[in-house]
Simulated scan of single mutants.
Amino acid sequence: MASERSLMDAIARIEADVNGVIATAAVDLESGMTLAAKSNRGDFDLTVASAYNSELVKQKLKIMRALNLKVQLEDMLITLTDQFHLIKLLPGGLSFLYLAVDRNTTNLAILRNSVNKHCNGLEA
């Protein structure tokens, strides 16, 4: 399991690569608890977002099982009118990285590239 420090380091590296990061959290999939988090907006409650996003991932995995899909879930992208929310499962599948970014200032390709690059060695 990755340490909080290594998770925070990965979050910092992603934030250095990507413009418009609103908030980022590493989240335990089973409990929905944040393992590491950083928010750049005081009104963005990462505790609530982490808990609900863990339920979202669990439901997607349940759907995949119901459809008998024999593939791995890599990430989920949710587009809002002013934000992108990216959920990236971390190696091992027991946790995920959740990012909320400003849609107007973030390049989605750069975001996904940075997340993949900095999360490759993490196992949380």
Score class of each variant (00 low, 15 high):
A10E: 02
L46E: 00
E55I: 15
L29N: 04
K38R: 13
L56K: 08
F84K: 02
N120C: 13
D43W: 09
K70E: 13
L35H: 01
T105A: 14
G93E: 04
V115M: 05
T81N: 09
Y98H: 07
A16Y: 07
E123Y: 14
V27K: 01
A2L: 08
I22M: 05
K70A: 12
R5A: 15
L61M: 10
G32V: 01
S31A: 10
R65G: 12
D9R: 08
Q72I: 12
A124R: 06
I14M: 02
T47P: 15
F84R: 04
L61K: 07
R103M: 05
G42E: 15
I22N: 02
F44S: 15
I87T: 04
T34K: 08
M64H: 06
T79P: 02
T79W: 00
Y52L: 11
L46R: 04
L35T: 01
N19K: 12
G92M: 05
F44K: 14
L67C: 10
D45N: 11
C119M: 10
I87C: 01
A124T: 09
T47M: 13
L67N: 09
L67T: 08
N107R: 15
L77W: 03
M1F: 10
M33A: 15
L67S: 09
A100L: 05
D17T: 07
G32R: 00
A2G: 08
L97G: 03
G42N: 14
A10S: 04
A10K: 00
L111F: 03
V57W: 00
I11S: 02
N107L: 14
E55N: 13
K88R: 12
R5S: 14
T34D: 06
E4C: 08
D82R: 08
S95I: 00
N68T: 10
G121K: 08
L97C: 01
G92N: 03
E30N: 13
A12M: 09
N19M: 14
L99N: 00
L89M: 09
M64L: 10
K117R: 12
R103C: 05
L90I: 06
V21L: 02
V101S: 02
Q59T: 14
G93N: 04
T47W: 13
D102N: 14
